[in-house]
Design a protein around this nucleic acid. Structure first.
Lengths: 162, 162
DNA sequence: GTAGTTGCAAAGGATTTGCATTAAG
DNA sequence: CTTAATGCAAATCCTTTGCAACTAC
């Protein structure tokens, strides 16, 4: 399964006549096997044992390449940098506005929204990115928030909280 | 209508005991009356006649404040900086991957996705942000692309184009 | 062999911060 | 008055770039 995704993505590189370097294979493998929505820095640190001379610039370049190919998508969670996620199956994300945690959600399918958006806007639609914001279960407990009205008590930098 | 939105947003500042300074009023008015999805730099330049001593830092601070209050949302379009949009009525955006243009779409309502995401993830959901990617009508013409299969001919940095 | 990639360091650019000054309530 | 907000400049941090050395094909 993860193997398939990896093989398929490498084939995609070959189709585009993009060289399959060890760096690209290792970063790709990392992304296929980790669902932790890593930042560039996280990927860089996690791979330093496997690739001692790996350059941050290479991580940046490689991720940009993967994003352009549609293999990987970019995410923001309110922290400083950009996070990345292998996009083998369409899904979207729920982001915790308190701790920045990102959770995958595979339902419902939002392709109908793409169709509708194309009709209304006249764009030739190629994809989408959905982010839902909220408080993750852990932060709800930690903050003593269990219903929407509790949010008003908080002086957090929570967006969308009226 | 635009007046209402402005009054309502200013009331929101007062409710939060946030001072209603001329800078905040002018930036808010700008956002309520412009649907051009401006960057910080654009806002800064457009307001320099009205507020000769306006500081870029104030624009940044003010926008961050408005985002935290949920009055305004942030958008990325692939260009360098962040863009902003007054969020008086829920809507989402279609972004051109070639020229960066951003178009508002007010249908369909996606609140049901929030509900579903909350059920699945256990988050207390407060909002969402949907971005649909594609080629705007102008860029379709300019590039001679009229159907999805034409995208394969392009060597552009288009994400999601396989 | 040769064009595309890498690693490194330096450069670039968006955003934030510190602090004295100003002004909202 | 009191405290938050502003403006300015410097600082910070993420990301990109230039270029010589290297390597996938």
């Amino acid at each position: 399964m993860a193997e398939d995704m990896l093989t398929q993505s490498i084939q995609q590189l070959k189709n585009h006549k993009i060289r399959v370097t060890p760096q690209r294979q290792i970063i790709l493998t990392y992304l296929v096997t980790h669902h932790n929505h890593p930042s560039v820095e996280t990927i860089y640190q996690d791979l330093e044992t496997q690739l001692p001379n790996l350059s941050l610039a290479t991580v940046y370049n490689t991720l940009k390449l993967f994003v352009d190919l549609g293999i990987v998508i970019e995410l923001q969670n309110g922290d400083a940098g950009t996070h990345y996620d292998f996009f083998g199956r369409p899904h979207y994300h729920v982001v915790c506005e308190n701790c920045g945690k990102i959770t995958d959600v595979f339902e419902p399918d939002l392709s109908s929204v793409e169709v509708k958006a194309a009709e209304i806007s006249g764009y030739l639609v190629t994809g989408h990115n959905m982010e839902v914001y909220g408080l993750c279960p852990d932060c709800q407990k930690a903050l003593g928030v269990t219903q929407p009205s509790d949010l008003k008590r908080l002086n957090l930098n929570l967006s969308h909280s009226e």
